[in-house]
């Protein structure tokens, strides 16, 4: 979330500043809240709450600016590691397993429920912790629970994806003969070799599109 988004989210919290929405403090706080920012959307509440609290406490603008700069990097990296490489792929993998073993709707609903418990929970916690923390908000980011989450996020996601792969693969490959299965295995192996050593920046999409072009060509020939 960038500066304009932070200003949009912070504005309701700034209306109660002395002087109200016509006052100088409100206007100056709004200007500060619209300046550059970048952070993870699920944890942005920590910054929104903390910065609004400092405005209410009358903290000098330079200190507020320093807090703002200090929060941007950690909020991004903690959120990215915790959500994008942790809970989201884990929930996705669980959704895949449920979808292929039970039913499509169970998979979809299971994934959405699991992911959104984290999504909504983090957003509510972040805003509340930010408001409570004010200038001391960093203590929440360095808390034991966050450290534990960061430690287990990657391995948990890798384990969940590993668990889902054979089950999803077998469901997708049902009805394929041995020749086709061998073809899938060869393409997958070539893709992994490309991604891990020959051409790491190629990416799955471009590899897939290249394969599609070759398959169409082979089909015509």
């Amino acid at each position: 979330m960038i500066g304009v988004g932070v200003a949009f989210s912070s504005e309701p919290l700034l209306r109660d500043l002395p002087g109200g929405v016509q006052g100088q403090r409100y206007r100056k706080a709004l200007v500060r809240s619209a300046s550059y920012f970048n952070g993870h959307p699920y944890l942005i509440g920590l910054a929104v709450g903390a910065l609004a609290r400092t405005e209410h406490e009358g903290v000098p603008p330079e200190q507020i600016g320093r807090l703002r700069s200090a929060l941007a990097g950690p909020l991004g990296s903690v959120g990215d590691k915790m959500v994008w490489t942790g809970t989201l792929p884990s929930a996705s993998a669980v959704g895949l397993v449920l979808a292929v073993t039970l039913s499509p709707m169970v998979g979809v609903v299971g994934f959405l429920v699991l992911h959104n418990i984290v999504n909504i929970g983090l957003r509510v916690w972040a805003l509340s912790a930010g408001w409570r923390g004010g200038m001391q908000v960093a203590k929440f980011l360095g808390g034991a629970a966050i450290k534990l989450c960061l430690k287990v996020a990657g391995p948990m996601a890798a384990c969940a994806v590993g668990l889902a792969l054979p089950l999803a693969g077998a469901w997708l490959a049902r009805g394929l003969d041995m020749k086709a299965l061998l073809g899938v295995g060869i393409v997958a192996t070539v893709g992994i070799v490309f991604a891990r050593s020959l051409w790491p920046t190629l990416g799955g999409l471009r590899f897939g599109l290249g394969g599609v072009a070759l398959a169409v060509l082979a089909g015509w020939l």
Partner: peptide, 13 residues
């Protein structure tokens, strides 16, 4: 062929 290639590429990704 498209089915084989897309499934293989998805697994590798």
């Amino acid at each position: 062929y498209l089915g084989i290639v897309t499934l293989g590429a998805a697994v590798s990704a």
